[in-house]
Design a protein around this nucleic acid. Structure first.
Lengths: 255, 255
DNA sequence: AAGAGAACTTGATTAATGTCAAGCTCAAGC
DNA sequence: GCTTGAGCTTGACATTAATCAAGTTCTCTT
């Protein structure tokens, strides 16, 4: 499917393509096309050769990995997100698999075109470096979150991050099913349930996808959110300058 | 301390600076200086403003992070390695602390100079992107290693990686003290001891820093090493083309 | 050679998390 | 209104790893 102008505009406003001038944009996007996928479609498996940069425009995508019959979720992406950029830059195989969680619309940009754009225009290349650096830092945050916090603390911080992103009110709506949230937080659905009940002490009440907070101070005393791990404002990437590039890879999504 | 020519040459042969022409190298290195630090010196704490790119020329450096009185080791670097590149590119704060493990010699490159070099020369900028992409993939490997393997499996794979890097003989020498190795593998020293004794079934014998293998096949059946997690040849970064950029951040070092 | 201190090992215990099994809830479809 | 099935919750249990407490070995210094 050809790219619609509206989509091209959207990509230029919400991703590192913003820094490309018209000529560079045309070079980097040469041969790109739009594709729709149903839910639960495998876009890419671990070890596959990567020929395209993927840009998620609608829907959501899970990045995961497996070994010896185990599987783990590394990140859940929401629009607008690029993925497997690192493999494209290095012309190497994918280290993660990518599966749609719902019907999704994805812009596929030939790796050759992107690399040519980067080599032609240092300013655009710099923007790609910023994006990669942001992804790297997102992973560092994710590792810190997992190695330094237990599952209840991860949930508490996830909830506070969502609360900040949803306007700071005392009720939020979980953006994913609980089983997906459990995978994102690196625990089983059973333990997510138990973690929620541990937080009822701290004023957290759950009703389906709606979560209420009656004592944020107490919750924060447990969660101890830190700007060196949590990224409460990642969704403001269009208004907060380069904050857009600081992805929450892994535990916290960008929604 | 001024930079010695031999050091400049070494950096140009063993890091992403290889792609810089003379003029770009001078731009990117403008104002750089060499500094020596004793063991256990904190170079950088989490949250500090990052003004320099660090290039480790001698010694070793631990990258770590803490939260709520807990600490974790994210990587142990050996020469020649650059670190906190992502923070330099984004002109942001450090997400990790950096501490020397032994007396170390470090080249400090002003962030401004590096950024100027990247913006002046797209080829050099592309090389920095490759480096960042390699660091990113190193972290992905590290997360997979931690989330998919238990501590004994991580040790078994670490040993096989070291064995491959040390020439494939049936005896290797551990490059770190066991307590450092334990931190690197994400476990306590006590559990590292226990993990070694579990591997004695698989033909692994330990004598101080020397580890012998009497049945690699059996060990591999447990470890199940995977090119999508382990990077057996990272030390060959000078001879295997761009493999140098695929860092083992986190669990496996680059030595 | 003796002593001190750090590194390492071992065992007992505790804490955290995963696994298995059963039951509950709710919405969609008949 | 009933059935069905997926998602979710709860409890019992197993596994994994951290913690605490000795003890041992090693190395460096004197």
């Amino acid at each position: 499917m050809p790219i619609r102008n509206a989509d091209a505009e959207r990509v230029r406003n919400t991703s590192f393509f913003r820094s490309a001038d018209d000529a560079t944009f045309d070079t980097a996007m040469n041969g790109a096309f739009l594709q729709r996928f149903p839910a639960n479609t495998t876009l890419l498996m671990e070890g596959d050769t990567v020929d395209f940069l993927y840009i998620l425009l609608e829907g959501s995508v899970e990045l995961g990995a497996g070994w010896k019959s185990k599987d783990t979720t590394l990140a859940i992406l929401r629009p607008v997100s690029t993925f497997i950029l690192a493999a494209v830059v290095l012309e190497s195989d994918a280290l993660m698999s990518a599966v749609t969680l719902e019907r999704s619309e994805i812009l596929m940009v030939p790796g050759d075109s992107l690399r040519r754009g980067m080599k032609e225009n240092a300013v655009f290349g710099y923007a790609v470096s910023e994006e990669l650096a942001g992804c790297y830092r997102g992973l560092v945050r994710s590792i810190k979150n997992h190695k330094l916090r237990d599952s209840t603390e991860r949930l508490a911080n996830y909830l506070l991050t969502q609360r900040a992103r949803q306007g700071g009110k005392d009720e939020i709506v979980l953006p994913h099913e609980k089983r997906v949230l459990a995978a994102l937080l690196g625990m089983t659905p059973e333990n997510l349930s138990r973690a929620f009940s541990k937080l009822s002490d701290k004023g957290v009440s759950v009703d389906g996808a709606r979560v209420g907070f009656s004592n944020v101070t107490v919750l924060e005393r447990l969660a101890r959110p830190s700007p060196l791990i949590d990224n409460h404002y990642a969704q403001d990437r269009n208004t907060l300058g380069k904050a857009y590039t600081e992805r929450q890879q892994g535990v916290l999504d960008q929604s």
